[in-house]
Amino acid sequence: MAEANVEPSIDEVWRWLEDVPDPEIPVVSVVDLGIVRDAAWERDELVVTVTPTYSGCPATAVISFEIEESLRRKGVEKIRIKTQLSPAWTTDWITGEAREKLRQYGIAPPVGEASCAGALKASGPVACPHCGSENTSEVSRFGSTPCKASWRCNDCLEPFDYFKSF
């Protein structure tokens, strides 16, 4: 097995990473969320650069573990996960496709651009992911995970999570 040790291309590595789900929101991948910043070969070692979402997010360690596991299953032997803090992760990096997946999953995707804001309150109105109504209100700025807030739809009366613009 060692003799046919052909390094997979970086494009292929990205395709594999696109299949690694976020541990908290499994409908989106760690690539969709913008958590994986880079993948590159350094000699025979594959270095994957990740950025934490919230510095206290308990999923961060699990994400690194799952990236490593999935690459190992594909046959990559030497893997290093590098953490990068700057530029700081922002919801602006969440792909359009992933926003739609979040909405279908029942989570309102982030509204507006976070990076140019600073004014966090300006993020809204948030459309209800169930009925589409914009007649919604914030229940709490913090939700089931650090990245989400709790909202409620005033029309269909369903509570829902909002992926905060950050």
Binding site: P52, Y54, S55, G56, C57, P58, F142, P146
Partner: peptide, 9 residues
């Protein structure tokens, strides 16, 4: 959640 952020930092 606030505590979690602070511990992360």
């Amino acid at each position: 959640n606030t505590a979690l952020d602070l511990i992360g930092q």
